[in-house]
């Protein structure tokens, strides 16, 4: 992929707001994920992180504001159009085609994104590291949760996206499996030149990977900057302590 192509694929959210009926999820949020860059997103449960990804991919409509991928305005377009343009997401829960083998799942991802098998060859080292090659012919939905989650991530990457939106990729993984996420994100950036928006609760991962994070809370973007610095700001700590227990444990270790 040339530099030229990369520069046209930055993801830019411009003063976006979303409400469901009377419920305001967030308001006046702006940020940019540079082409090939990496931006972390943190915030307590219910802050609207998943909703934001749903808006970027076109599953939900925006209440106001706009979203640009490179030069193209993408909010309000259909999910598959955005995916074919290179904006692809992963899901917070496992999302695979149940009842089909690992191979069929990956082949489907290739077919739907109009890629050929060579992408799979390039992904092979990663697939091997995750343990997916060992399970190549296994029915995907009887595999352990961690493997299913990694399969979902591998499928997103198999579409060779320009911009990956990862919704809590480490959620539900064992501590020992979490290094896979590091490998995955690095691989996506270095081998495929993807930009990555990483929504994650695991602060260790965020600190290891992200040069920069944004913090969402109470419907606003409350902080932005390098993770260690941002996480030491008092109002960010407050936002987390006000959240549920789950995030407390994540932020303290």
């Amino acid at each position: 992929m040339t530099r030229q192509a990369l520069s046209t694929s930055a993801l830019h959210a411009d003063r976006i707001a979303k409400s469901f009926g009377g419920l305001k999820v967030f308001n006046d949020v702006s940020f940019t994920v540079p082409a090939g860059g990496l931006l972390g997103v943190i915030g307590p449960n219910g802050a609207g992180k998943t909703t934001m990804i749903n808006i970027f991919t076109g599953r939900l409509s925006l209440t106001s504001g706009q979203v640009m991928l490179g030069e193209t305005r993408i909010d309000g377009r259909s999910t598959f159009e955005n995916a074919l343009m290179g904006l692809v997401r992963s899901f917070q829960q496992t999302a695979i085609f149940n009842g089909h083998s690992v191979e069929t799942n990956l082949i489907s991802a290739l077919r739907f994104s109009k890629r050929d098998r060579s992408v799979l060859e390039r992904l092979a080292p990663l697939l091997d590291q995750f343990g997916l090659i060992e399970n190549w012919h296994r029915n995907a939905d009887v595999m352990p949760y961690g493997l299913q989650k990694m399969l979902g991530l591998a499928m997103a990457l198999a579409t060779q996206p320009k911009m990956l939106l990862l919704d809590e990729p480490a959620a539900g993984l064992e501590k020992s499996e979490r290094v896979n996420i590091d490998a995955y994100v690095k691989f996506a950036q270095e081998e495929f030149g993807c930009g990555v928006l990483l929504v994650e609760h695991d602060m260790e991962i965020i600190k290891r990977l992200c040069p920069s994070v944004i913090v969402l809370d109470g419907g606003r973007l409350i902080a932005e900057g390098p993770p260690t610095e941002v996480l030491s700001r008092p109002h960010v700590i407050n936002a987390y302590l006000g959240g549920s227990d789950e995030e407390d444990s994540d932020v303290t270790h």
């Binding site: 599953r59 259909s78 999910t79 598959f80 085609f97 149940n98 077919r111 739907f112 994104s113 579409t159």
Partner: peptide
């Protein structure tokens, strides 16, 4: 068959991978 199986089992995922369901 791949397209139909995907739409039947998980159309949200299929669309997010680029399939015009």
């Amino acid at each position: 068959r791949h397209e139909f199986a995907a739409i039947e089992t998980n159309d949200v995922l299929a669309e997010s991978l680029g399939l015009a369901a």
